[in-house]
Simulated assay, not measured.
Amino acid sequence: MSTYKLVCPHCGGSLRIRTSVGQHIFLRTAYLQCCNEACGATYRGQFEITHEMSPSGMPNPGVQLPVAPVSIRRDAMRSDSDQQMDLLELEAV
Rank of each mutant, 00 (worst) to 15 (best):
I72N: 00
F47A: 15
P69R: 03
G57Y: 04
D80A: 14
H51S: 06
H51N: 06
R78E: 12
S54R: 10
Y43R: 04
I72P: 06
V63G: 06
V70Q: 14
R74V: 05
D75I: 05
D75S: 12
F47E: 15
A41S: 15
I72M: 11
T50V: 07
S54T: 13
S54F: 09
D75Q: 13
A41I: 00
G57H: 10
R44M: 15
E52C: 08
G57V: 00
F47T: 14
R74Q: 12
T50P: 13
S79K: 14
E52I: 09
P59L: 09
P66H: 06
Q46E: 14
Y43L: 13
T42V: 03
P59H: 06
P66G: 04
E52T: 08
A41Y: 04
R74Y: 01
D80H: 11
A76S: 13
D75C: 07
V67I: 10
Y43H: 12
A41G: 12
Q46I: 08
P55M: 01
Y43K: 07
H51F: 07
Q46S: 15
S56V: 05
P55L: 09
H51C: 11
A68L: 01
P59R: 03
V63Q: 08
A68W: 02
S79D: 07
S56G: 06
M58A: 14
S54G: 12
T50F: 11
Q64C: 13
V67S: 02
R73P: 06
I72Y: 07
V67A: 02
M77P: 01
P59K: 04
P69I: 02
S79Y: 11
Y43S: 01
R73G: 10
P66V: 03
Q64W: 04
V70S: 04
G45C: 11
R74P: 09
R73S: 02
E52D: 10
S71I: 06
V67N: 02
R73L: 00
E52N: 04
S71K: 12
P61I: 05
P55A: 09
Y43T: 10
A76K: 11
Q46L: 08
R73I: 05
P59N: 06
S56E: 06
S56I: 08
D75V: 08
V63C: 09
A76Q: 03
